[in-house]
Amino acid sequence: MTFVDIAVTGRYSLPMRRDTEKILLDQARSGQERAFAQLVDLHSERIISLAWRLVGQRDEAEDIAQEAFLRFHRSLSTFRGDSSIGTWLYRTVSRLAIDHLRRERLRRKIFFFRSADNDQPDPLDLVSDKSASPQEQLLAQETGQHMQQVLEKLPPQQKAVFVLRHLEQMPLKEIAYTLGLKEGTVKAHLHRAVTQFRKEFREEREESA
């Protein structure tokens, strides 16, 4: 299997960061929990953010990110470093989020009586920065809500592909590796997601016109 590394954002590919990571990884392996905490601190922002983009709610995103870090902790002794820690976490959190979304869909199918309003994310979760001005918070809330509403309609894998490509700007080849899919499948998912987004935004424009 060919391993690819997330270099698209640059933040994971900085040589200095890689060196720091390696030292921390060695220390964490030898049981130094402080080093593990530092590794979590290095990656938490991006990993929670990715989970949040995938599942739409902050608390659930933190739970998923936490599970990914716990799995990483459990794999410390076997982690070979074929891919960077960031890539490993991206992969794990994406798959956990897809599982979570599938479970949610199943739950909704089973408990069909649940009202549509309850399925909407908590608006407070969509406020991007608690320290921003009320106006900025409102704007973030509105754009985030609409984005989330459209994303909610996409099947889990399609949603993950769109989030990883459009929002995280990850190349399709890496998305295929991350999600364990064929590149052709990833392309098809992206196309369907984009078509759905265009349809929703077109309808919204027509309604407001």
Binding site: S49, S128, G144, M147, H166
Partner: peptide, 8 residues
């Protein structure tokens, strides 16, 4: 399409 950011 908006790109909402989560600031932590």
């Amino acid at each position: 399409i908006p790109r909402p950011e989560l600031q932590i």
